[in-house]
């Protein structure tokens, strides 16, 4: 009886395993791109959606720019369009990384592709990472397109001298929000929440991030206890860091968040450390819970839809 040579694995062969997992992720990326491409109207809607979102905030910005600029304070400059464009772009970035794991797992479960993914010889975590390639494919271009719309059409201004640091921050933002996304996805199997509102996503994105993180206004307008609460989610640090780095009127120094005020380090360092710490905690926790969820579902018979 012949075993498959392409999947044979000797213990300790870390590189071949890693290479195979990376090749699998690439296959996911190609598939996701092809699926996106196959619905041609998607491409148009994608651009229209970005344009309309940016336009909406431009109009709000026009209405309130004088007052809003005063609220931004020296740390975030005085251009509300720049402030809001960064907020909107990063919020979309965070939202998809946080929400996609659960929604993609659910979709795969209901259309039966989860059976296939769990039966292939890759790690049970690879599909989760594979789904995220779509987010990366979608989000990074979106980041630039939102920025471009904001700059070219709506009077937002950006500086690019700190672009490399900003890109580094987006990686931290992606990782930390994906950690929460994995915890959210684990509830699909661990708590058997297969319909309705997923509580982790609702709590973090629907409640805390929407109200407290400072997408549309600086956290300084909030009561002090809520400002501290805002410091519990990655969104707050993401907005703060990217605005400081990309807005030409913003300052790199000058503490805004309560945590920044409490610590003797530069605000950007605090942002980076907070996002890094959240990544270190949330990603392993997400992996642990998701793995537990898979095992529980395997015992309960809820791993795949069709029995």
């Amino acid at each position: 009886m012949s075993a498959r040579p392409q999947v044979s694995r000797a213990k300790g062969q870390l590189w071949p395993t890693l290479r195979r997992e990376l090749a699998t992720l690439w296959a996911f990326a190609v598939r996701e791109y092809r699926m996106w491409q196959s619905y041609r109207v998607n491409q148009l809607m994608w651009l229209v959606n970005i344009f309309v979102t940016t336009l909406l905030f431009f109009l709000i910005g026009e209405m309130v720019k004088g007052q809003a600029a005063r609220l931004l304070g020296p740390a975030y400059g005085n251009n509300y369009m720049s402030f809001i464009v960064v907020g909107v772009a990063i919020n979309v970035f965070l939202y998809t990384n946080l929400a996609d794991p659960y929604t993609r797992i659910a979709r795969s479960y209901y259309n039966g592709t989860m059976d296939l993914l769990l039966l292939s010889p890759m790690s049970v975590f690879t599909p989760l990472f594979g789904f995220m390639t779509k987010s990366i494919l979608d989000d990074y271009p979106r980041l630039f397109v939102v920025g471009a719309f904001g700059m070219l059409l709506f009077g937002a201004a950006f500086r690019f001298q700190y672009s490399l640091i900003a890109i580094g921050f987006t990686v931290l933002i992606l990782a930390s929000s994906f950690g929460i996304g994995m915890i959210s996805a684990s509830s699909f199997y661990l708590l058997n929440i297969k319909r309705g509102t997923e509580p982790v996503r609702f709590l973090v994105q629907g409640l805390l991030a929407t109200l407290l993180a400072g997408t549309y206004y600086p956290v300084t307008v909030l009561p002090r206890p809520l400002q501290w609460l805002a410091c519990l989610i990655p969104h707050t640090y993401a907005f703060d860091a990217l605005r400081r780095l990309m807005d030409p009127g913003a300052e790199l120094g000058g503490a805004v968040l309560p945590v920044q005020q409490a610590l003797p380090w530069p605000p950007l360092l605090v942002d980076g450390l907070a996002l890094g710490l959240m990544t270190l905690i949330l990603v392993p926790l997400g992996l642990l819970l998701y793995g537990r969820g898979i095992e529980k579902a395997r015992r309960d018979g809820t791993l795949t839809r069709w029995q």
Binding site: R4, Q6, A23, T24, W26, A27, R31, L117, S120, M122
Partner: peptide, 10 residues
């Protein structure tokens, strides 16, 4: 082909 790639084929 996607499944082949999932199974680690070049």
């Amino acid at each position: 082909r996607f499944f082949a790639r999932l199974c680690g084929m070049s």
